[in-house]
Design a protein around this nucleic acid. Structure first.
Lengths: 207, 207, 207, 207
DNA sequence: TATGAATGAGTGTTCATTCAT
DNA sequence: AATGAATGAACACTCATTCAT
């Protein structure tokens, strides 16, 4: 993606400065963010052009650069939005739920609900980013850290038999969940069903 | 108002015509295929250009169109090659192994070995394809069917407690495995370790 | 100018490889070069777009990239062509001329003749390049070195009074000559007159 | 078939209206002018954007249009500022200097001092403008006329041998001086040295 | 079988400028 | 007197694809 600027002229970074007071309307920025998240999760980062996003909100491509100095920044911001949405969904899902396994399950259900159709915005976190340039990839991973950290805490709260590597357990579960967009079809099991089943497999094993 | 993503350009169907006489060596085609698989698994489908592949085998971009009428066909063929490699690895891994769980484990170890560094060519099956256009995506899924079918057979051979959905179990396992390129780092566990751990999680559960 | 590529994918340098045998037609490349030199000398490097050049030879902008991988390379190549033309003009001008001052004068006349109207192509060497990015600028300077070196030899051949810095003398003369496009008007002195006058000023001083 | 270079965009003439009452301090305008001159001389006219200038004084791009209706007007005004500075430098340099050659030399030293590092603002007059659109170019030339006129006077004051075209002599000297940014490097001769040498070459000739 | 040359639509990005507030 | 937001046209460059040779 990322294409070079006219001539050098020193990069001019102009840092994304997250709006001053954030008081004023600023709704175009949010519109943009939402549209970007939606398109990114439908078509992927590379396959979504700045023009696609601009059109979606009825704006010209160049106008977006007032709000985001580069596509990468838009990706980062949209991804952050997705992570936030997921975190909120996590909080909501956990409300009033006790029992370590029940809590893990509730979160997985929320996760898949968001991934597989619930929210267009959360979907952005399931977009494959393994092919993005190192630097950008690192920024996205960092953003996920809070979410994965909370997931790790939920898993730490479980009583497990000896010999289980809790990190690998988390990564296994996340893989199961995040791979679903590769095969999920709306006609089959519901996202919630799938999530519950995955958790059950881990909890009880299959024997 | 959502705008169509890139690609498309012109359908023009010209079916992959699997070689005319198929008589002669045809090794340039195979070279091409290998190079494509290698690059696809390193950089992804979108990020690999026809020129990249052509250069890799010392050919000009236009020349490839003698062998493959379109990039999609090359993707399909390279993916097929990857699946074949995985199938061969599966056969090798299963040689002389008895015991349903041992067989599943052997196959998972082989799968991750190939995915995470072993073969460049097999790596192509772990490339995210959820964002590819429907039609192409369908062709790839179809190609995986044999592999997944054999995996399904291995899973069918297991004795499982009641209530386990063997299809979801398979997809969960595959997700765990195929998601590994997103977090795997060479310094940590070996691919074989990871694979064995994932199988153990399923087999015994974590409680 | 110079704009970044889609996404990283390793720079892919594809070195400008000055045509293999240079036997075959290859005339489009030369056409392109001539058109570029012409436009560069009329409008400057920055103000001449790749599209301008492409249009000039009836080609689409993208097609040029088959011949030159980047605008910078085109600039370098066109500049080289200009320097060559100037060198040829120098050789022609020197033919049969003896006497160190006469030789210098002949070369200056040829220089201005080319710069101020004779050849569109030689004009490219008088285009200001002091604002170009360091790296490109360095390449152009390097290309001029042969020409300036020959000029330096002509100056070395002169008998001068003590205390004259021959390098500064050369740069002064070159400056006088190369600045002429900033004020020259076809109605006044001829380029040859001007050149002769400049040389005379240096030779005899003004007192 | 030659295609028009960039710029243009829309003529829309709205004459520079030299301040309404011109009562109040008006210092933002002057700040702007100084910043523009500084950036123009560092990077050239084309390579300096309106945003660059606005940022330099902590203003938004749009705000500048209150002070200057178009970039061209800003160029013209900044250039005027540079000429003024050069004229002041000329006056300072001439203070108490008698002797026609000494006066010329003093002015050339001041000129190069300003051009090659001294004042950012005066530097604007050495920026190559030979590629600017005719109309704008004409306005700048007109502004230089006073400076060049004073230079011409200094030259008129010299006693010269017969046959010297004083106009060509002036243009030769100016060319030598103004071409220096194309080759000057801070490590070599000082600007003053260079200027003195150039004058000496003219004065005494080289034989 | 492959090359050389081109096409045309696309990409991310920049920039002078406008204008309601 | 300045801001925030947008426009529209341009720019350098890439890419899948075509086709005569």
């Amino acid at each position: 993606m990322s294409i070079a600027p006219r001539r050098i002229r020193t990069p001019k970074k102009r840092v994304t400065q997250r709006r001053r007071g954030n008081t004023r309307s600023d709704n175009r920025r949010d519109e943009l963010l939402a549209a970007a998240a939606r398109l990114f999760s439908k078509n992927g980062f590379e396959a979504t052009s700045m023009r696609d996003i601009a059109n979606e909100v009825g704006m010209l491509a160049g106008s977006m650069y007032y709000h985001f100095p580069a596509k990468d920044d838009l990706i980062v911001a949209a991804h952050a939005e997705g992570v936030q949405e997921l975190l909120r969904a996590m909080d909501t899902a956990l409300e009033g739920v006790v029992g370590a396994w029940e809590r893990l399950e509730a979160v997985c259900v929320a996760h898949l609900d968001n991934l597989l159709g619930g929210s267009d915005i959360a979907g952005v976190v399931a977009v494959d980013f393994s092919q993005l340039p190192e630097e950008l990839r690192a920024r996205l991973i960092e953003q996920r850290d809070e979410y994965e950290g909370r997931l790790a805490q939920l898993i730490d709260a479980l009583e497990l038999r000896e010999g289980v590597d809790r990190r690998l357990m988390r990564l296994s579960l996340l893989g199961s969940l995040n791979w679903t967009p590769n095969w999920y079809r709306a006609e089959g099991h519901t996202p919630a069903d799938i999530a519950r089943h995955f958790v059950a497999l881990l909890r009880q094993g299959v024997c």
